[in-house]
């Protein structure tokens, strides 16, 4: 049932500020319902007098139910919560079902971040995120929020966090968001600290095992290359492994275009220009022809490097 304010005694002190469209008809105008128009009129009025109160929370909740993508309403609600010292636990309890209904919404996640930051505790958040990811395992906002959470509460060395990430990769080894989160936990979020040799070895081993499950999946290949680069190892560290999937002597038995791609880099590093060209040629003509221009560009870089040397 629609909710109105003009006959509500609790709001009798407010003169709503109706939307003023001036004399010309605006473009992309929306024929708002009376309910939405009126609620927005009351919101503009309370914003104009900087009112922060319980009834503003009710009003913003009402508008959000009609338009969850309304950043103005979310930002004003966040400010109200902080001004009146409202219960932030109650806010999270209200937010959960709202977030599940509107998965691809920037505002809800930013709002949640503001609230959890003020609450100063990540309790219950991991479970909530898991529920969200069941709906959409690659939701960008949810993963970004998880990364914020880990950083804000220093969860990098929480074993459960890494275990959970592994379970996400386990359930879909092609979920790149989960791979990115692993990188974040192990390498990226540590503010440039070097990672130990044992961790490098563990990560290389982990990614290699993932490649073996599905060699044409690019996620673990990107991860492997990233780890090797970060640890400042020569990329030829991965040569024997890449050869398992792409032995150029037997082009009929190539199991991964990404292995060929990596081999081209390895041969370039080892200054085996002809081998590198051969790998790039196989990619351009047979194993990844849609990117032929790119592979040929990589060939041209070999020429330039040759001239420079």
């Amino acid at each position: 049932m629609p909710k109105y304010y003009h006959d509500d005694p609790a709001w009798s002190d407010i003169d709503p500020l109706p939307q003023d469209d001036g004399t010309l008809h605006p473009l992309a105008a929306i024929a708002y319902t009376e309910e939405y128009s009126e609620a927005m009129g009351y919101l503009r009025a309370v914003m104009a007098k900087n009112e922060f109160s319980e009834r503003v929370l009710g009003l913003t909740e009402h508008i959000i139910s009609m338009n969850p993508a309304h950043y103005t309403v979310w930002l004003y609600r966040a400010k109200t919560l902080s001004q009146i010292n409202a219960s932030l636990r109650d806010e999270i309890a209200w937010l959960n079902p709202t977030a599940l209904k509107h998965l691809k919404n920037y505002q809800i996640w930013h709002h949640r971040q503001t609230i959890i930051d003020a609450l100063d505790s990540p309790d219950g958040e991991a479970d909530f995120i898991a529920t969200m990811l069941e709906q959409d395992a690659k939701n960008y906002h949810v993963w970004s929020y998880r990364q914020w959470l880990v950083k804000r509460f220093g969860l990098f060395d929480d074993e459960e966090e890494l275990r959970w990430t592994e379970s996400m990769i386990e359930s879909d080894v092609r979920n790149n968001s989960a791979w990115n989160h692993r990188w974040f936990l192990v390498v990226g979020g540590r503010d440039g600290q070097a990672i130990g040799e044992d961790v490098v070895a563990r990560e290389i081993d982990y990614a290699k095992r993932a490649v073996r499950k599905a060699p044409q999946n690019q996620c673990p290949w990107n991860y492997l290359k990233g780890i090797v680069r970060h640890a400042q190892l020569p990329i030829s560290t991965l040569k024997d492994f890449a050869l398992e999937f792409a032995d150029m002597r037997r082009p009929d038995d190539i199991y991964s275009s990404h292995a060929l791609d990596l081999l081209a880099d390895i041969y370039a590093e080892q200054e085996s220009k002809e081998e590198a060209e051969r790998a790039l040629h196989l990619l351009a003509t047979r194993f990844d022809p849609i990117r032929a221009h790119y592979w040929n560009y990589r060939k041209s870089l070999l020429e330039q490097a040759g001239t420079a040397a």
């Binding site: 473009l27 992309a28 105008a29 929306i30 024929a31 338009n67 993508a69």
Partner: peptide
Amino acid sequence: LGDYPRQFAMMDASRPWLL
């Protein structure tokens, strides 16, 4: 660029994009 029916209230904050 024309008028939108009321179901489009959720686009209220995105009208500049529509233009």
